[in-house]
Amino acid sequence: MSVVTVEGLRKTYGDLVAVRDIDLAVEVGEVFGILGPNGAGKTTTVECVAGLRAPDAGRIEVLGLDPATDSDRLHEQVGVQQQQGALPPKLRVGEALKLYAGFYRDAEDPRRLAATLGLTDRWDAPYRVLSGGQRQRVSIALALVGRPRLAILDELTTGLDPAARRETWGLIRSMRDQGVTVVLVTHSMEEAGELCDRVALIDHGRVVAAGTPARLAHEHGGGTRMSFRPTGTIEDALLTGLPSVRRVVRDGDRLAVTGDPEAVVDVVLALDRVGVRPADLEVASGTLDDAFLALTGHRFHEAEDGGPR
């Protein structure tokens, strides 16, 4: 069952086309990544999904509701964590959680939520003194306090140190384990690979590919690469004849083989049959970065400057 369906979404700001044509389907219970460089149209897309902006064209359905016309009912069931959403500096953590809990029909107990998110000892701390990681946890708490069926998290870990990032990822996994569907907007390939069940790669307001991170990396990321120094002489044909091998390149005394993930085992076994061992074996698989490059013709981080968010 789809929690979010987006078809042919288009959104412009004046002459600026933020979202050109986007289709998405987010299934119940998954962590779905919307991945792309800054300015690709990710935030605009989720703002339309969350009912914060009206699309210029296209159809959106979230939990069976149209966000543009039914935003009140939508906001009961969808928790949103936006970029740059701060709180009044002197508002205390506990006050914020209790206040927001009061906005929802069936809210989570603020104390318990604070405990889950490791905020109990910061209950009386004003927002101003919180660390970046703690602020993010408050932000997640406010997105979850209404017991949403869908949580939209936009650039959740940007600006966090690696430890706080890992911690936040753990929280998102536990959210999913509790049955909350998560839409995660990120420009971090690592985060998407780590957390997401499926991702949509977005560039210039379009979805360039969608699928599980492993599949995208494999299908578009150039496959699995291995490189080794054979301990004996072999013909290329021994390896190129294997169905899982795509390409064999010689580089001095080393061989570089590209192919499917199974190629690694196939090559090692084929070498073994002729009594040769692959010395100094190195294996690398395709990455989402490689996939992005192959799909768009430009590197992920080159696309970072300019453009609408």
Partner: peptide
């Protein structure tokens, strides 16, 4: 703050 509130009921 107002933006965040607009995502709530």
């Amino acid at each position: 703050v107002l933006r965040r509130m607009s995502t709530t009921p």
